[in-house]
Nucleic acid binder design. Sequence first.
DNA 1: TTGTTTATTGAACACCGTTCAATAACTTTG
DNA 2: CAAAGTTATTGAACGGTGTTCAATAAACAA
Lengths: 202, 202
Amino acid sequence: MGIIERKQSEREKMHKLILDSARKIFLKNGYEQTSMRNIATDINYSPGSIYFHFKDKGEIFKELHREGFQLLLGKLKVLDNVADPFERLKAVGRVFIQFAQENKDYYNLMFIVDDPGKESEGAGFKIAQEAIGHLLNIVKACQQKGRFKDMDAEYFTFMMLSAMHGICALFCKDRTASFVGKTNEQLMDHGYECFVALLEKA
Amino acid sequence: MGIIERKQSEREKMHKLILDSARKIFLKNGYEQTSMRNIATDINYSPGSIYFHFKDKGEIFKELHREGFQLLLGKLKVLDNVADPFERLKAVGRVFIQFAQENKDYYNLMFIVDDPGKESEGAGFKIAQEAIGHLLNIVKACQQKGRFKDMDAEYFTFMMLSAMHGICALFCKDRTASFVGKTNEQLMDHGYECFVALLEKA
DNA sequence: TTGTTTATTGAACACCGTTCAATAACTTTG
DNA sequence: CAAAGTTATTGAACGGTGTTCAATAAACAA
């Protein structure tokens, strides 16, 4: 019976329609500045209708949150081809920062905006953990090649992530204005190269 | 005529009353989760009255934002006694992170919550710039003693700040759950020591 | 006492996320 | 085909938000 399948596909179409509009508006105006009515108006639907397809605003957030991580992970996966683990580590940082530059709003959603749902739960948490595990493995591979031998791998990974996130977070919140005469991109790129210079001496 | 002075002092008293209540509620529930009506109720005033003393919610934010920076700067100033610039630099980071741990909500207000007012403007911006200039000077002093000689002082400062902020931002947003079996404080403290270890080798 | 400035009020406006009874559209059953 | 049932959609309504503003009270100056 192809009827329930058609029903299903129509529900999926509606799901996608809402999500596409939400993505567009979320990434333009930010999560807080986007209302359910904005989305509803955009797709010519009633506000209440969205709640038939999504439990609440946080549910839409979660889906976009996951999207963002998949996008980032996809870009990081390419680096598996880089044979030397230290080169891979440095490249991860560069790709991470580039991702933030090119997807400022996804980045906000993923790392900065308050998680409306409960933390440490759901697919979003799992995928974040996957990303961290990935980074941790690279660090350990570096150590097996003799780098960062005297460091705890987990704390070192956390520190790496913090440094990269710090750069991106200041960028996303435009807290870079105090460095006059330098563009955001200059600060981020050269700032990261400073960090890499430290790594290279360790 | 002491009358206009009394008037003035009463206006200041009211200003303080609102600010005290706002601080209490902001730092407990967060900026977004605090309403003008919450504040008004707390001090037994009408919602509209607040607008006689503050332009809008963002104006209150700005004042607390400034407070936070003054608190932080006060703690950093103590470190002027540390003679060796590199020791001073390392201590700045430790104090910064400690500040975030002890004043999570101020930290949020200062570095994470969206600035409701226009950026790069007003006293808050000036004080932030002062803090950065302070850090920059320490970095330059380190360079004069032979450290970080091959680095650009400004980019290096930005990188330092990013690393510290990254640690604190992950903490403030509880994005640390993916590191199982470690407390926030452990991650922050040991993570920072990892970073210091890098600095020491440079 | 009258006029003027200053401070306070609370209703009102336009928005928000969310709920829900009503309803329309479509599918299944009798 | 008609009745019953399921599914999707609606828009009003609820309680909340930041903010404005005419009315008002209080304190001062003339």
